[in-house]
Each structure stands twice: as structure tokens, then as C-alpha cells.
Simulated assay, not measured.
Amino acid sequence: ELQFALSGDVGITLAKETQPDLILLDVLMPHSDGYQTCAQFKNDHQLQHIPIIFVTALSDFNDERYGLALGAVDYITKPIDIRIARLRIRNLLERERLKREVKIYRKHFTGANSLNQFHSPAIQHNSSHIENIVAYDPLTEVPNRNLLIQFVQQSIAHAQRFGLMCTICHLNLDDYKQTYLCSDEKCLSQADTQKTSKLQAVASINAANDNVVVDINDQLLVTIIQRLSTTLRQCDHIIRLDGNEFILLLNNIVSETECKNMLERVLTIIQIPITINDRSIITYPCLGVTNYPHDDVDIDDLIRHAEQAMCQAKPLIIKIR
């Protein structure tokens, strides 16, 4: 169920009446702007728990940073890629649902603390299982963004202690916009020779049933992450953000040369063709990188710098900030 409000004041009134699961908020609105409205939501005890996503034409870095600093969980700029936006919203709603479940379980366990039956191994196992669901991506089985800050903190502390580098990589597999899907090698050769646009190359997929597209995308992600898991070292981390975006945390880096060699291996392993439903799929990733302590800023800025570098990178090119 969707509700629409043409101003911030009307939106706040509606939110108090209906308690929505999510708010999509524009910045440019009559009367009070989106930033002022977001601040009102976060200062209201009844509404501050509701996640807010900014959807706006303001794409400047300072605008995005200001919106996120106010408490928004995401910032989507226009023109909007509907498929990416849908995936981000779906993932956010799923996380919020799981958080509510964990809160209910914890309250239940706390209230039953004096009863022996709630201390059984089975109950404790279920509680641990639900918390794992909140922290790990169910599709790829890697940590999700809820553990991102914790892992980056650990990587920085380790780098400081041993005088090493840690590398934060923002990886974008781009949800088929830069993926060729063909049924045989001849098709791949023709797509390369004719320099067919990437959007045209996936036209047949876009025309297919949405469930088929999602299934192919899921299989593609699982295969790529499995390959990366065998390529990276035990001290490194793969974290899924949203949709087809991931963070790679590379630890114990001695030099920029070592970092570059590892990233080239990452790009190579991602580009190996994957066969799904009789289709040969080649993925062209974008990768943005920042290195600590060369980029000696706080954690949020480190993550943001890697994302900015990714946005400036062309497919198959490593952009190091």
C-alpha cells in the first residue's frame, strides 16, 4: 500500500496516522524541504524509527552527505534505475522485518528469563540463527552492510597496529546493464565485433519474465562471490551492500603494487564467463578503491571515497582515490 504527500507537513501527519514501513522523500518540496522534513522525523519519538530514503535530482556529494548525516538510510539520485531502486527498497524492507523479529525474540527471552524452558539449547540456537540472518546476506552467505562498519574498524585497527595498509574496494556488478548474455560463442563474438550496446545485448532478458531475470541475477551473484571467496585470502572480507554492490576489504597489504595485483586478479576472476540456463554470461565490473592510511579520514568518508572512485571508474578499470 502506497500513500502520497505533496508536502513535508502532510507527510508527517500521514506517518503518525499509519506508521509506514518506509518513507521515500524528495528534497525539493514546497514549504519545508526534504532535509527539514527528515530532521523533523528523526526528532519525533513516534517516527524516528521509520527508515527514510532520499529520492532527488540533487546529486552533489555534499547534498548526499548532508542527507545521510540527518539519518537517512540511503540516497538515490535521479534519473532513477527502477530495477536498482526496487532491489534497494526490497532489501531494506527485508532487513527492517528481520530486525523487528530479533527485537521480539529478545523481548520474549528477557521476559522469560526466570523460566528454565527458555534456556534450552534449541531456544538459544534459534536466537543466534535469527541474529545471523540480520547480519548475513541469505543469498550469497557473506556479511551484509550491518557488519560493514565493524569490519572496517577492525581492519583499520589491525593496519595501525602492524604498520600495514588496508584497502576498501567498492565493487559494482551493475545489474545487467553492463553484462552480455548470449547463447553461444558466436553470439559473443558478434556482440564484440559489432560493438553492440550493453543495453541492447540484454534486451531479450529484459523482455522475459521478471522472475527469470531475478533468478539469473541471483545465480550470477552466487557464482561470482564463490569465485571471489576462493581468490581472496582468509584475512579479507566480502560484504554485500545492496543489489549488485559489494565491499571488498583487503587486509595485511604491504604495498600499492601488492594491492593492484590483487585487484587485477579480482577483475580477472569476475570476467570468466558463467553459463546459466544455456547462456554464456560475461560480467564487466566497476571497481573503486581507497587505501588506509594513505586516505587518512574517518570510516564513513573512507567508504564514501571508495564509492566515489567506483562511480568515476569505467568498466574493467580500477579507480584508486
Rank of each mutant, 00 (worst) to 15 (best):
D278R: 14
F246E: 07
I270V: 15
Y284C: 06
D236Q: 08
P285H: 01
L267E: 08
V297T: 09
I216C: 02
I224G: 00
N209W: 03
I281A: 03
L287K: 00
L249V: 14
D298L: 13
S255T: 15
T230N: 10
T275S: 14
I225A: 03
F246G: 03
R279C: 09
V289K: 03
R233S: 07
I282S: 07
N251I: 12
I247Y: 13
G288F: 00
V213W: 01
L267A: 07
V297S: 01
G288C: 02
N252C: 10
T223L: 02
Q219G: 06
T223R: 02
I253C: 03
L267G: 10
N251G: 04
Q234D: 11
C286F: 05
L249S: 01
N211L: 15
R265E: 13
G288T: 03
H294Q: 08
N244T: 15
I274T: 08
T275K: 13
L267K: 05
L221H: 01
I281E: 02
P285D: 01
T268K: 14
D236K: 03
V254T: 13
Q226E: 08
C286E: 13
E256R: 13
D218M: 04
N211D: 13
I269F: 02
V254Y: 10
I238T: 11
L250R: 09
P273S: 08
N277E: 09
V289F: 01
K260Y: 11
C259L: 06
V266Q: 06
G243Y: 08
N209Q: 11
I281N: 02
D218N: 15
I238M: 08
L232S: 06
Q226A: 09
P273R: 11
N277S: 09
I247F: 15
L263H: 10
I282E: 04
P273F: 10
I282T: 14
Q226G: 07
L241Q: 10
K260V: 10
T257F: 04
N244C: 15
G288I: 00
I247A: 08
L263N: 06
I282H: 05
D210V: 08
N211W: 03
N217H: 11
I281F: 07
N291S: 07
K260H: 12
P285F: 01
L250T: 14
S255L: 12
I282P: 00
D295E: 07
P293N: 07
N251R: 11
S280Q: 14
